[in-house]
Each structure stands twice: as C-alpha cells, then as structure tokens.
C-alpha cells in the first residue's frame, strides 16, 4: 500500500483502539487519497520466468519527473520480482514464451511488468538514472 494510506490506516486503528471513531471527514480524506493514486510501472528483465530469479535489467516509469538524463547507474532496489511483490508491486504482464529465431535468443531476459499505485509525489526513491523527483507543475 502507498505510504499516505498506510499512515491513515495506522492512525485509524490507533484511534479505534483508544475508543475513538472514524468520522465522515476522515472517510472523505481517505477517498481523496485513493482517487488521487497514480499508476507506476516497474520493468524487470529476469534470468528466468520464475519470480525468484535474478535481475538482468530494470527500468521505472510513472507520472513523475526524475533526474532523467540517460545514465543508467542505479541497480534495481529489489533482488528479484518476488521481493518487489512483497513490497506491494503486482505483476500485470508475465514473460512471453521465447521462440528462438535463427539460432538466437530474441530477448535480453524474461520481461515482467509490475504496477503499483502511489499518491502524487510518492514512489520509489530512485530510477536507474538518478533520483525520482515530484513532477513540477506547468
């Protein structure tokens, strides 16, 4: 789950534990947070089509600005797809079966595409090329 929603849930649980209640205003706040969520995509090319296999390559896309000058220097923050799933990422595209042509592999690795929803301004701290930065309006 995204950080802001996690915080809301923790606060709500604490309030209920103390005998408090959730108000309509609180629910509207939660609804606004959920409506504002944005999809982020994590591409992982793995050694095999198993979620525990190692990362050959990765990239990160979303509605954010980053220090995007093509200069891939950051390794993937997850050691494999499984650890990304444990952090809240959902697989939306599984690797296709490879049919080698002309005795050659037709891809670099096995491509997983994962999605996760974040509130505006949130997301992984880095891309392969540098720090992720909140998008600047205009």
């Amino acid at each position: 789950m995204e950080k802001a929603v996690d915080v809301w849930l923790e606060q709500a649980e604490a309030r209920i534990a103390e005998g408090g209640r959730i108000t309509e205003t609180d629910l509207r706040t939660l609804a606004d947070m959920l409506r504002g969520r944005q999809q982020h995509l994590l591409y992982v090319w793995a050694d095999s089509d198993h979620v525990e296999s190692g990362v050959i390559s990765w990239n990160y896309f979303g509605p954010f600005s980053s220090e995007y000058r093509f200069d891939p220097k950051n390794e993937c923050p997850y050691k494999n797809v499984k650890t990304a799933m444990a952090d809240g990422w959902r697989i939306v595209s599984f690797p296709a079966v490879e049919y080698p042509l002309h005795n050659a592999h037709t891809q670099l690795g096995h491509q997983f595409i994962l999605e996760r929803f974040f509130s505006p301004g949130e997301g992984l701290p880095i891309t392969p090329h540098g720090a992720r930065k909140p998008e600047v309006a205009g």
């Binding site: 390559s57 990765w58 990239n59 891939p72 993937c76 042509l101 592999h105 037709t106 491509q111 891309t127």
Partner: peptide, 24 residues
C-alpha cells in the same frame, strides 16, 4: 558510449531495447 559485453548474439527489436535501463 555504453556497451553490454556479450550482447551481440541476440535478436533485439527497438521496442524491446528502448525500455531497458540499468543492465547487469
């Protein structure tokens, strides 16, 4: 220039390669 040693014996298409970021 960046290179991936040993990558020359595969068939790639531009849609594949253009999305690659950091590569081991």
């Amino acid at each position: 220039t960046m290179l991936l040693p040993g990558s020359h014996r595969r068939l790639y298409t531009p849609p594949q390669t253009s999305k690659l970021g950091w590569i081991r």
